[in-house]
Design a protein around this nucleic acid. Sequence first.
DNA 1: GAGTGGTCTGTGAACGTGCACACACTCTGC
DNA 2: GCAGAGTGTGTGCACGTTCACAGACCACTC
Lengths: 338, 338
Amino acid sequence: MTIPQQRARATVHDVAAAAGVSRGTVSRVLNGGYVSPAARSAIEAAIQSVGYVPNTAARNLVRQRTQAVAFLAHEPHPLFLEDPNIGSVMLGANEALSLADYQMVCLVIDSVRDTERVSRYLAGGFVDGAIIVSARSHDPITRAVTRLALPTTFVGHPPDLGTMPWVGIDNVAAAREITTRLLSTGRQRVAMIAAALDRDSGADRLEGFRQALGERFDPRLVAEVPLYEYGGGLAGMEELLRREPAIDGVFAASDAVAAGALEALRSAGRAIPEDVGLVGFDDSTWARRSRPALSTVHQPAAGLGRRAAEVVLAQLRGEEVERGGILLDTPIVWRESA
Amino acid sequence: MTIPQQRARATVHDVAAAAGVSRGTVSRVLNGGYVSPAARSAIEAAIQSVGYVPNTAARNLVRQRTQAVAFLAHEPHPLFLEDPNIGSVMLGANEALSLADYQMVCLVIDSVRDTERVSRYLAGGFVDGAIIVSARSHDPITRAVTRLALPTTFVGHPPDLGTMPWVGIDNVAAAREITTRLLSTGRQRVAMIAAALDRDSGADRLEGFRQALGERFDPRLVAEVPLYEYGGGLAGMEELLRREPAIDGVFAASDAVAAGALEALRSAGRAIPEDVGLVGFDDSTWARRSRPALSTVHQPAAGLGRRAAEVVLAQLRGEEVERGGILLDTPIVWRESA
DNA sequence: GAGTGGTCTGTGAACGTGCACACACTCTGC
DNA sequence: GCAGAGTGTGTGCACGTTCACAGACCACTC
C-alpha cells in the first residue's frame, strides 16, 4: 500500500445529517442568519464530532473571491539575501492583511518558468488582489495583472506603471535632507558614493545630493558603483580618497555601501566621525551593526508594506483609490557616524 | 460609480460556443485526449479571442488538488531579518516545486491571529502539501497538518515531530569536524562561543565541539550566549578573553557570532589568523563579508529547501517516504580566518 | 378569526470545471 | 456486409458550497 490513506473529508452534508438539519441551516450557522439556539448548538456539536472544515475551493467558486492577496517578489536572489528591507515590507503587508482577515500568499519569481506559472496562478482566481515589489520595466507580470484587472498595488514604481497605484518614498527629498544635515555639522569637502544609477531610486538619491550642495556640487566628488553593496562602498571610497584625500564627509547611497566605505576609511586611518562624517540610507541592520553606528535615512519598510496592503484592501472594498503614488515619510536617524 | 468594472470572465462555455463545439471538447484540448486538428485550432483561436483562463477554484473543486504547496515560515521577525538562510531555503524549495510545475505559496506566521488563519487556509484545500521551517515544539500548526493528513515535510526537527518526515543537517558531526580541522592548525587553547542552547542545533554544536576536544575539553573555555547574534559573539568573546587571555582558537556557533567575536578580538589587539584562529558555522554572507573571510561550515540551505520539496512531491505522487530525518552534507569551507 | 410580521428552516439552482459514459463515424479484415 | 477496433465528439453528473426563495410556525393585533 503506497498511497497514503486519506480519509474523505467531512462536508456540510455530513454535518447536516449528524445534526438532523439541512445544509442551508448549517451554512447559516457558518455565515450568519436566523437559526434557533437548539439547532445552532446541535450543529456546532456535529461540526466538532465529524471534524468539519469548510472546503475553500467550493466556497471560492460560488463566492467568486478567495480572501487571499498575493505578495509578489521578483528576482529575489539578490533581494532576499542582501536586501534587509523586503522582509520588513512583507511583514508589514502581512500585518495589515491579517487584520482584515485576508491571507497573504507570497510568491517568488526566480525564472521564466516561474513567471508563466505565477501569471496562471494570478489568473486562476487564487487571489483577490496583489502587492508587487521590485517589478522591472516591461514586466510580464505587470501586463498580466493589468489585463486581469486584478486589484494591485506596487511598492516602488517602475517607469511603465501607467495608472496603477503605488507606494514609495521620496528619494530626492530624503537624500537632500540627510546631505543638508551632514553639511550642517560643518563639513567642507562632502562626497557621495552613488549606486544603482539605472534604477530611479539610485538616480534620485544622487539628485537629492546635488540639490543639497547647490553651488558647491563637484562631480569629482561623486563615485559611481553598480549596486547597493558592501563591495561597492569599499571600492567607491578608495576611489574617492585617491581623488581627494581631504574629504571630510560622505553620503553613501545605502547602508551597505556605507559599511563598505567605513571599512575603507578605517583602513586609510581616518577616524569616524572625527575626521570624516559618514551617512547612509535605509536604516537597515547594517546601520545598527556598524561601529560606529550609522546616521542614516529611515526607510519605512514595514509601513510601505502596510500601506500597499491597505490600498489593495480599499480596492477590494470597491473604493476609488488615488491613482499614482503615495509617498511615505523618511525620518532621519542620527547616530554616531556623523 | 465606485465599484471597479470587472468584466465577467470567459468560461469554458464561452469558448465552446465561439468555436462551435461542446464543453467536453474544449476540456480535452486543455487536458489531453482525442481531438481533431480542425477542432483544436478552432478552439485555440476561440480561447485567444475570448481571453479564456481556466478557473482554478472550479478545477480544484473537481480535481481535489491545487497544484500548490505551502511554504510556512514561523515567527519570521528575527528570521527574515537576521537569518540569511531562510531565503535560500525558500528559493531552493521554489526551484524544486517549480520544476514539477507546482506553485509555492509562502505563508508567514507572525501572530496568534495568523496561526488560526493559516490553519484554516491549509485545511481549506488551497494547497496539496506543506513545507514547514522553524516550527516550535507543540506548534498548533504541526497539530493541524497532522490532523489534516496533509503531506508535509519539516526543515529541521522540533522534538515532538513524531513520524513526520524532516530534512536537516548533522550539527554534532559538522561541529566536531570543523573543530578538529581548527585543532589541526596547531592551536593549543581552543574555546567555543555556544549559542541558542535551548534549540537542538545549538546544543548539538556544543556537543560536537566537546567530542572533538575529547580529553582536552575545558568547560571554562565555553561561553554561552542566548542567540545566534553578532552582539552575543562580541560579549562572549570578551568574556572568554577575560577568563583565558592565551586563547589561540575559537569556534563560534554561527557566522554572525563569529563576526562579533572578530570585532572583540580585533579590539583586544589580536591578529586573525596569526594570533587566534576563528571558525564559524553557516557559510552565510557574514562569512564572506568578514575581514578576514571566515572559515566555516557550509549549511546547504538551498539544498534543504530543495530536498524538503522533493519529499513533499514524493508524498504527493503517493510514494512511500522515509519516516524520520534526512541529513544533508555540510562541507567545510576553509578561508582566511583560521 | 383573518391578517400581519417576525423567526426559523428546507429546497433547488447555481458557480466552472473534469471525467465517465454513450454515441457516431471511419476504417480495416474477413 | 458486418463485427470490431480506433478515433472523435456531446451529455450528464459530481465536486462542496452559498444564496434566493418559498414556506412553516408562532405570536400578536385589529
